[in-house]
């Protein structure tokens, strides 16, 4: 027995050490850097290409500069708005509202989603309405909210909630519905009560889908916020990205309009990349899905 043991230990030891010293560290660093590069290179290339096309169009077609400003004019409009502090104000106002509205939506949607997921007759009764709310463009709620709350922050938050809550509810309900039946059997065999089954088995099992639902919820919250900000300006409302866009329209300032559009896009996408991307990756890697 002991001779067999020592032979087993001696055998694989040498190749293991070679692997550890030579292959693993180099490969590890290489993959991290090349993964970042291969993730960033294609979108950066496309971006540069689009700018080049834009410049080419302006040079060749020579359109009216007030309707079709070139990249140069756009950059100078951006720089002057930045120096005036308008951009910082608009981004921080919108971001604060968006994040707050989104967090509020999560707080409201999660309990509702759990109740619907756990109660089949309630799900059958309310499911179509939740989906209907999700399909309805939340810009439709802006007039309603203005009549109810006037030009206040309450209007903005109402529109965000009506846009994001149904989407987060649906993500949670779908996520829980897709938990493999075997996990429910295991919960039963292990003697889990209703709360334990949800807390220890069903919710963790539904987590990847739930994060997908949150991500979609953020997209809905951000879109709803922009719809509200573009339509509802003035009053006690602060100056957000939507208001910046609307201001550009009223001044017929095309460079300003596009500055606002690009900012809305960039902020929305940055939140996805900075918050939801790592969250999704973390959960997937833990489960060996990636």
């Amino acid at each position: 027995m002991s001779t067999a043991d020592t032979r087993l230990e001696r055998g694989p030891a040498a190749p293991d050490r070679v692997l550890a010293e030579v292959t693993v560290p180099g490969r590890d660093q290489g993959t991290r850097r090349s993964r970042l590069a291969s993730a960033l290179a294609p979108p950066v290339l496309v971006f540069v290409g689009l700018i080049a096309l834009w410049q080419l169009f302006v040079v060749l077609a020579d359109p009216r500069p007030d309707l079709y400003p070139g990249p140069g004019e756009a950059v100078s409009a951006f720089v002057s708005a930045w120096e005036a502090g308008t951009i910082t104000e608009a981004v921080s106002t919108s971001l604060r509202r968006g994040v707050l509205g989104f967090l509020l939506s999560v707080l409201i949607a999660v309990p509702i989603g759990l109740v619907l997921a756990e109660t089949p007759w309630l799900r059958r009764a309310f499911g179509p309405f939740v989906t209907g709310l999700q399909v309805l463009p939340s810009v439709a709620w802006v007039p309603v909210a203005i009549i109810w709350f006037g030009l206040t922050d309450a209007t903005v938050f109402t529109v965000i909630l009506l846009g994001a809550v149904p989407s987060i509810i649906n993500g949670l309900v779908t996520g829980i519905a897709q938990v493999p039946p075997q996990f429910h059997q295991v919960a039963r065999v292990l003697g889990a009560g209703r709360r334990e089954r949800l807390q220890l088995i069903v919710i963790p099992a539904a987590l990847p889908n739930f994060i997908g639902g949150l991500k979609q919820g953020w997209a809905f919250a951000w879109r709803s916020l922009m719809a509200a900000e573009i339509i509802a300006t003035g009053g006690t409302l602060g100056f957000g990205l939507g208001a910046l866009l609307d201001q550009g329209r009223q001044l017929a300032d095309m460079a300003g309009v596009f500055t606002a559009i690009v900012l809305i896009l960039v902020v929305g996408v940055l939140i996805e990349i900075a918050v939801f991307g790592p969250l999704e990756r973390f959960v997937a890697v833990r489960r060996g899905l990636r």
């Binding site: 075997q182 996990f183 059997q185 295991v186 292990l190 003697g191 889990a192 334990e196 220890l200 088995i201 963790p204 099992a205 987590l207 959960v283 833990r286 489960r287 060996g288």
Partner: peptide, 19 residues
């Protein structure tokens, strides 16, 4: 039918907790 988000030890501990 192990929980994919838990380590081997935590999977066993889950059964202990529910007991």
């Amino acid at each position: 039918a192990l929980m994919p988000w838990l380590s081997a030890r935590r999977n066993v501990e889950l059964a202990l907790r529910l007991r």
